[in-house]
Design a protein around this nucleic acid. Structure first.
Length: 494
RNA sequence: GGUCCCUUCGUCUAAUGGUUAGGACGCCACCCUUUCAAGGUGGAAAUGCGGGUUCGAUUCCCGCAGGGACCA
């Protein structure tokens, strides 16, 4: 099939989009863009019991959040399929991107296989009871109709799989892969309820949607020979397959909930930037052409550099630390304006109401170098917005309650800072002068004064520049907070 | 249990029939510094095991082990 390459991502809406699925979607998206192709999104909602509209909605939202936009799929082109529509009308068959809409087509083609003697009814419902059903697969159509009637029209339809044949294909990542049909056996394509089985619906849809490249997780590798047999029976030309390795949890097992968040949208709540997530996912199972290149990628850079060549074959462990690091890189890479815009949803509404935008902005920019996630902002800057904020026990002990000179230091600070007017509080230069003066006066290194002050003002041992903190907090709040610690020894003897 | 897939620092990965096995996260140290970050410099850290083929294997082949997936 020459022409525009067509890639697809086909999730089942039985739950949220997890990171493994997101990565598969991303690879397809990048490959489609790279090769001037189309990226198709198909919702495989054939499992009626477990599929929900909410899950579909969630998946679409997650993909959109990541910036993985589909050229065709829900909301983009398409209409429900007419009952009985067959692939003589290929455009029409692309019409619906919900697999459930396509059931008539699946049934139609399954029946065609039956009429052609390539599929048969069997009452050994449970697959695997016997690999090859030598009795039923050899019945004539008439005999099968009779059998079907005897079972009230409810029998599964199985594909008649040729015996002792090698099914092989060229996988884009793994090279030649071979299976023997003796290990596969006849398998169900239509359940007794009349609904198609995954391996059948998938083939019909991929083919009728004109998919040329099937890039999916290698958990599907063992499905591929079965699908190839379906292509063969239907007389359809198969697409090119590419099985990407899976993403594992830190214990080397398939990534699952017990490893922490596997839900893509959960990372949005954590304050991960979508582009950081994309960057991170791209780096599992793929590497760029230049091994010494830094690992930061923008979408533009990914689109330029991503290709088949960099794809690897061994599974990768999801490394949260690296994601957080990359997220920090992406945060710092944002322009100030972009950063502020992206940060705002993570700033408590009350803070935005009660404080001036300029104040918020300054604090936000002070933290820009320090954040690994946007959600961290709230806990890291609470002392700027609330008078009640938590104290780090160890810092409090070290710098204040167990510091013999704390009372003296705070008295001197209170005295010296108290002498400054509101205006002088706005000059970090002036503040530095005064604070260094206090240290000198007490015969202490500057840090010995700055740290207790930092703890008193922020509750912790780490913060932006102490001068910025003092300035932004302002005279009143600084004197208030310092005042409380003037005689800690007296109040709180150790 | 059957079939298939995978195996380089803790993790993501690069490379080659001959290299000091490279980069990145994390870790450690140092620099910067009022702290924490950020940034910079340096360091520790890997070819699963056993056989072959070969002058030489981490690379090719075979077994094993471990992990994973699918089917049951």
């Amino acid at each position: 099939m020459v022409g525009t390459p067509r890639f697809r991502f086909a999730p089942s809406p039985t739950g949220y989009l997890h990171v493994g699925g997101a990565r598969t979607a991303l690879f397809n998206y990048l490959l489609a863009r790279k090769h001037g192709g189309r990226f198709v999104l198909r919702i495989e909602d054939t499992d009626e019991a477990r599929s929900t509209p909410e899950a579909t909605e969630q998946i679409l939202r997650a993909l959109s959040w990541l910036g993985i936009n589909w050229d065709e799929g829900p909301g983009v082109g398409g209409a429900p399929l007419e009952p009985g529509q067959v692939p003589s009308d290929p455009e029409g068959c692309k019409a619906s991107y919900f697999q459930s809409d396509r059931a008539p087509l699946h049934r139609e083609l399954a029946m065609r296989l039956w009429r052609e003697g390539k599929a048969f009814y069997s009452h050994t419902e449970r697959a695997g009871e016997l690999k090859f059903d030598e009795v039923h697969r050899n019945l004539t159509l008439e005999e099968q109709e009779k059998l079907l009637r005897e079972h009230g029209g409810r029998l599964p339809l199985k594909l008649k799989v040729p015996r002792d044949q090698v099914v092989e294909f060229e996988d884009r990542i793994r090279g030649r892969v071979r299976f023997n049909t003796e290990d596969i056996g006849d398998f169900i394509i239509l359940k007794s309820s009349g609904s198609p089985v995954y391996n059948f619906a998938c083939v019909v849809d991929d083919y009728t949607m004109g998919i040329t490249h099937v890039v999916r997780g290698d958990d599907h590798l063992a499905n591929t020979p079965k699908q190839l047999l379906v292509y063969q029976a239907l007389g359809f030309e198969p697409p090119q397959f590419c099985h990407v390795p899976m993403i594992l949890g830190p214990d080397g097992k398939r990534l699952s909930k017990r490893h922490g968040a596997t839900e893509v949208l959960h990372y949005r709540e954590m304050g991960i930037l979508p582009m950081a997530m994309v960057n991170f996912l791209a780096l599992i199972g793929w590497h760029g052409p230049d091994p010494d290149r830094e690992e930061y990628f923008s979408m533009t850079e990914l689109l330029a550099e991503f290709d088949w060549e960099g794809l690897g074959r061994s599974p990768g462990v999801f490394n949260l630390e690296k994601l957080l690091w990359l997220n920090g890189r992406h945060i710092r890479h944002l322009s100030d304006e972009e950063y502020l815009e992206k940060l705002m949803p993570y700033v408590p509404a009350g803070w935005r109401e009660r404080f001036e935008e300029a104040y918020l902005r300054e604090i936000a920019l002070l933290e820009k170098e320090r954040l690994r996630t946007l959600a961290e902002f709230e806990e890291k800057t609470r002392y700027f917005f609330e008078d009640k904020f938590p104290f780090d026990e160890r810092a409090l002990a070290k710098q204040i309650t167990e510091n013999e000179r704390a009372g003296e230091i705070f008295a001197a600070l209170h005295q010296a800072l108290g002498e400054l007017g509101e205006e002088e509080f706005q000059s970090e230069e002036r503040l530095e002068e005064v604070l260094r003066g206090v240290a000198e006066e007490l015969g202490l290194k500057f840090g010995k004064v700055a740290q207790p002050l930092r703890v008193a003002l922020t509750g912790g041992a780490a913060s932006p520049s102490i001068f910025s903190v003092v300035r932004l907090l302002g005279r009143e709040r600084v004197l208030g907070r310092v005042g409380k610690f003037i005689s800690p020894q007296g109040e709180n003897p150790r």
